[in-house]
């Protein structure tokens, strides 16, 4: 998203200084476009290869396919779309991703507000602890969490239960440290005067939170929503460990897609087509949240 936001910022800068440095805007845009192009080269390669036969991919580079004679075909996409269980897996992915995005952001917003604008003993120590949790690799949590959530504990995982709630809880836990950190930094940067004048007018903490902090933090919330959505949508390991062993019909798209190739790594040609299909929804989510960045920048909330 920085790549998308950057041209706008560049444009604003360029407009302000156009008269003094006429070539600046052009150079800036050219550099940004060039960097974006470099960044996208592997994606182009994947796109072209997804339309080629495996024998072609193995024998020549993807760039050779751009010039005629074209030998593109849709076989890979047809295979992926006709694979059994793709539809169910897509629904499962949504069913995992949406709550796993909403819950941590909701919790993190409350926590970030408390860390920024409420006074209580041990506030800074608690915040440091939360941030310190960022460095814990989630793989180390699997066994203790599975014991807690599994049949030996509160039994949210295992044969007979869907395991979805366990996955939401797990993703909430894994997402919270970063979410709280990001939101606290943003909320802490909001102007103190706004909250003070609201308090003088008789607003309590709840009003301050819902009517001031949340509306003013929309850009940060939107950014966080994209991060968390992508993290959960692309997640293979957590879903596999928490759902995999006992609830095969509930597995998300990532697991189904990874399993399009066989145990020796063959049949990889379908993965590129599948990658493009699974990319669609995150792209839609990104563009639908995109406008909130712009509104956040130009909203003028800071002026009060």
């Amino acid at each position: 998203m920085t790549a998308m936001a950057a041209p706008r910022a560049a444009a604003t800068v360029g407009t302000a200084r156009r008269r003094s440095r006429p070539g600046r805007r052009f150079v800036l845009n050219a550099v940004v476009i060039f960097i974006m192009f470099l960044w996208l080269i592997p994606t182009f390669g994947m796109l072209f290869n997804s339309f080629r036969s495996p024998a072609d991919v193995a024998s020549t580079g993807w760039w050779t396919s751009i010039v005629p004679p074209w030998r593109f075909n849709l076989d890979n996409y047809v295979h992926v779309l006709n694979t059994n269980g793709m539809g169910t897996a897509f629904v499962n992915s949504l069913f995992i991703t949406i709550p796993s995005t909403i819950i941590p952001i909701a919790v993190a917003a409350f926590a970030a507000y408390a860390f920024s604008w409420m006074q209580f003993p041990g506030r800074d120590v608690l915040f440091v602890v939360v941030v310190a949790l960022l460095v814990i690799p989630l793989q180390t949590t699997f066994v203790p969490l599975l014991k807690l959530l599994g049949p030996q504990g509160i039994h949210l995982i295992g044969p007979g239960v869907g395991s979805f709630v366990a996955v939401w809880l797990a993703h909430t836990g894994y997402g919270l440290p970063f979410a709280i950190y990001l939101l606290r930094n943003y909320m802490g940067g909001l102007p103190r005067e706004v909250f003070e004048s609201a308090a003088i007018d008789g607003a309590g903490q709840a009003t301050s939170f819902f009517r001031l902090a949340i509306p003013m933090s929309v850009p940060a919330l939107a950014a966080l929503a994209i991060f968390q959505f992508l993290f959960v949508w692309n997640d293979l390991l957590v879903a596999l460990i928490y759902i995999g062993a006992a609830n095969a019909p509930n597995l998300p798209l990532t697991v189904t897609v990874a399993n399009l190739s066989n145990s020796l790594g063959g049949e990889w040609q379908y993965l590129m087509a599948a990658a493009f299909l699974t990319m669609l929804l995150p792209v839609v989510v990104f563009f639908s949240l995109q406008r909130y960045f712009v509104r956040g920048i130009t909203g003028g909330a800071v002026k009060g």
Partner: peptide
């Protein structure tokens, strides 16, 4: 028959043996 295929079999089964959640 509910089949799960994954090349991360060892990760699933190693955590599964520890936690008792096994296929």
């Amino acid at each position: 028959v509910q089949y799960t295929g994954t090349r991360d079999l060892n990760a699933v089964l190693t955590t599964g043996v520890q936690s008792g959640i096994l296929p």
